[in-house]
Amino acid sequence: MVDESTATLSNVAAEPGASKPDPILAADGVRRSFGGLNAVDVDHLELQRGAITALIGPNGAGKTTLFNVLTGFDRPSAGNWSFAGTELRGMAAHRVARLGMVRTFQLTKALARLTVLENLQLAATNQRGEGMFASLVRPLWRGQENRYRELADELLARFRLDHLREAHAGTLSGGQRKLLELARALMTRPRMLMLDEPMAGVNPALAQSLLEHITSLRDEGMTVCFVEHDMDMVMTTSDWVVCLAEGSVIAEGPPRAIGANPAVIDAYLGKHHDEPSSPEQPS
């Protein structure tokens, strides 16, 4: 299966907007402008099902804004996109998540005063006890709650967070929070994970285990798209790389090809990496 997805991608032209054999996400003409500046301006983009796609680009390239738009956390100025055949334009964020496209955040959003276990339990879908009236009648949801607790415990063990089960999420270290957020996203049984800088601020040991988690997820058939700055990670983990600069896709292709792409090198070296005039901070 792994070989299949990488093999199919090997026949795809390494050019912006290239069409994929089995896209799970397809975007057309998605634009988001802030006060005249186009933070995102993507003509066409497809993401292959079952593959790991890395989204790279210099600071302010619009990666996070694109994430926000695609997952319903921001409204685009124009454009259409679909996920697994469903048109998403105008859909509220929680409905996008229920369709199976689940995101994490650049700055982790651990629910500080909930325990680690509760963080995971919260993420389970279709909970009967989440109805206002049903919540008062415990027998209606006790069985389901127990099943989800077992599932959560399995995930905690897999991510080696089980010893922190009853700790408040707010007491976790930055790396542990990243792990928790990933585990929490998985608890929703997503079809596709959108990870916004999953490695930022994570110590090398934890980063290695996060990486392994991500690749093993892909091996189980999950689609993953992540934003990352660390080129080593991009090169070793991803099946396909999309490079954004000034809101547009300037290049895409397999990792090795993208490293040598002149447009990418230009985008990274032609501009200062830490240029403050990022369009993500509208003045």
Binding site: R98, F105, E118, E130, W141, A185, T188
Partner: peptide, 25 residues
């Protein structure tokens, strides 16, 4: 009863960070 139920868990998660709750559907 309300707070010690899945409903209460969602409510408390909104207090902590409503975007996180949204991202979980």
């Amino acid at each position: 009863l309300l707070i010690h139920s899945p409903w209460g868990r969602v409510i408390r998660s909104i207090r902590e960070d409503e975007n996180a709750a949204r991202s979980l559907g």
